[in-house]
Design a protein around this nucleic acid. Sequence first.
DNA 1: AAGTCGGGGCG
DNA 2: CGCCCAGACTT
Length: 347
Amino acid sequence: MSLFAYQFTQDLVDWYESEQRDLPWRRSRDPYRIWISEVMLQQTRVDTVIPYYENFLKKFPTLPALANAHEDEVLKAWEGLGYYSRARNLHGAVKEIAASYDGVVPNDPDKFRELKGVGPYTGGAVMSIAYDFKEPAVDGNVMRVLSRVLYITEDISKQKTRKQFEEHVREYLEMTEPSKFNQALMELGALICKPKKPDCEQCPVSKLCVAREKGVVEQLPIKAKKAKPKDQQVSCAVIVDENERVLIEQRPKEGLLAGLWQFPAVLGHEDDLSSVLHDQYKLDISLQKESDVFKHVFSHLKWEVSIYTGTIATEEDHQGVWVNKQEFQTYSFPVVYQKIAKHYLGW
DNA sequence: AAGTCGGGGCG
DNA sequence: CGCCCAGACTT
């Protein structure tokens, strides 16, 4: 048993016990609540998650409550948080637990990891934080911290590298409380060992840090660059009738923004949009091209959304889903369409 | 192993 | 503008 590992785990956990933030999901060991927080926190900052977490637990206080909810309600509670498959997978997994595990989160890492949306990180995080299993929870924070402390220069975007980190963490977990140690590692990454301008002066393990000794802390971790988002032209129709109802449609069940709602939209230009309005909704109205272009960046796409507005008489034959303001609020819309609604409808 | 999947905050 | 964030799933 190495002296380094002993000192590292002790110093880190001691620091965590005095400096940890008071976060909503740290006030309970309920695996359901821990799980919700971990899924929301995937690729998402703490400050962004907190209000969603509070609202979500208010609407779905227990696992059975979530299991019995409709997917539309769940997506509405997730509206604006992004990566919506997280919500669908979580909902599916929770329904599976209600059906096959009597509503109790499995007290077993192998079984828990079989659930939808539970990968290596989330599996380890929930099992260690809620039940103190000796399971690593290696996320971006942990890889940044350990790549610096241990001076690991492999590309952290490769899964082989993540497994390397997991092996190191497994060793440390033998000599400390898993719940505290895993959280301490992430907390250090969030508060001290930040991507830019790390506060090495305040770091409880700076004396043990190889990257600091070498003066290369800010060069780590090594990570391959991501491809640039591709440009896409989107044309979108905001069509209202004389009773101030607007036409909306649901996106496909798979792919980008799956299952969310939007104003009728197509990849392409005005003629493509007109075709869809004619074919899908039997609408042949004159569209007015607006001057505004809404730009929106996704992980791998860059949208330029052109807006076309139109009005129809109420007595015309309506096809599709027409909603007033109150009804509109109950559907889940991607942020870019929320902006469009705000701008053209004030909704 | 590489692509897909959101959104916001920060320098 | 590019980078990063308590990643998982598909192919």
